[in-house]
């Protein structure tokens, strides 16, 4: 399977990873090789097989709808690259 640089750039953009033209050139054959290798799965007959959703049978638990945690604003913000006035700070997004 061949992957072109335009596809690599589109995937990188979806994945929010900045890449240079040179990196896209390098990644195109790499991703093409890997995708070509995984394409062999297409030969497996899975007509009436259900996709796996849980490896070990388990049931989803419900818990009481009560507050169990909270009041940890400072701890939550402690690792932020930029925190101001009790909030995470990001570059301005209003146009």
């Amino acid at each position: 399977m061949s992957v072109d640089t335009a596809t690599v750039k589109r995937i990188a953009s979806l994945a929010r990873i900045a890449i240079t033209d040179a990196e896209a050139e390098r990644l195109a054959p790499e991703l093409g090789n890997i995708l070509g290798w995984i394409e062999q799965l297409g030969e497996v007959d899975t007509g009436d097989v259900a996709p796996m959703t849980a490896v070990i049978p388990n049931h989803l638990r419900l818990r009481d709808d009560v507050v169990t945690d909270g009041g940890a604003r400072d701890a939550v913000l402690a690792n932020a690259p930029q925190a101001e006035h009790g909030f995470f700070a990001v570059p301005k997004v209003i146009e």
Binding site: A12, V76, N79, A80, P81, Q82, P91, K92, V93
Partner: peptide, 19 residues
């Protein structure tokens, strides 16, 4: 935004900061 590294090039917007 919340932890770890942030790379904010000059003049970058939010999407560019993520990337």
């Amino acid at each position: 935004v919340r932890y770890g590294l942030r790379d904010l090039p000059d003049g970058a917007n939010l999407q560019e900061m993520y990337a």
